[in-house]
Structures are given as C-alpha cells and as structure tokens.
C-alpha cells in the first residue's frame, strides 16, 4: 500500500499523544502522519490556519492538508464547506474525536489498508 499521509485535526501539539478535536476547521493544530505500509513513519504537528480565520476556517484547513499531500482527514465533525472541498479533492473523511492520534490511527487502520 506504500505511503499514505493522514491529517488529523487536534487540540494540542503533543505528537502521537495529541487529542483529536471534535471540530475540523477550528481545531488549533493539524497532525500530519505518514503511514508506511500501515506503520507510523513520522508525525508532525502544524498550526491550523483555520483556527485564526474570521470565516472560511474549514477551507483554510483543507488547503493546508492539500499542501501536505494528505489523502485522509480525521476530525469529530466537518463543516459543510470543508466537507465539499475534501470531497471535490478526493480526500477521504473519517469522523472520530476525543482519542489520541495514535489510537485514532489504530481504529481506522482497516480503512487505511484499503488505500
């Protein structure tokens, strides 16, 4: 399956221990995780430009994920605009929140294996 990049909306900047946010566009950070054949290759936490946007937060967060080459986006909920943009770009969405990045990846592993 090669390398897949997953982007998770997170509440804090603590690597794999960061908590997945209940919201996508206005989460403070985005965790970018590289999965190599299903194994976690590397994790980077970046600021979410959507968090400080007056409006269009979802779109800004999508843009950031697109720059990172992310194929799968994870958050508790995606707003209408973010959802549309992700769909148009063919980025898969997974709704999940309140767990660590590591646990989220465990839970969606089977879905990722299909990538």
């Amino acid at each position: 399956m090669g390398t897949v990049k997953v982007g998770l909306a997170v509440e804090d900047d603590s690597g794999l221990d960061s908590r997945v946010s209940s919201r996508f566009g206005r989460a403070p950070f985005l965790a970018i995780v590289e999965l190599e054949d299903g194994e976690i290759g590397g994790v980077r936490v970046v600021e979410n430009p959507g968090a400080s946007a007056r409006s269009g937060a979802g779109i800004k967060a999508v843009q950031r994920l697109l720059e990172e080459g992310v194929r799968v986006a994870v958050a508790g909920a995606f707003g209408p605009n973010a959802m549309t943009a992700l769909e148009e770009l063919g980025i898969e969405t997974v709704e999940l929140a309140g767990v660590s990045v590591e646990e989220a990846l465990q839970r969606i592993r089977t879905r990722l294996q299909g990538q």
Binding site: R26, A51, S52, A53, R54, S55, A57
Partner: peptide, 9 residues
Amino acid sequence: RPNSGKLVT
C-alpha cells in the same frame, strides 16, 4: 464588523 465563527469558537 462581520459576524464570526471564530468569536463563537
């Protein structure tokens, strides 16, 4: 001043 989702957040 425009209404704001950020303010609500």
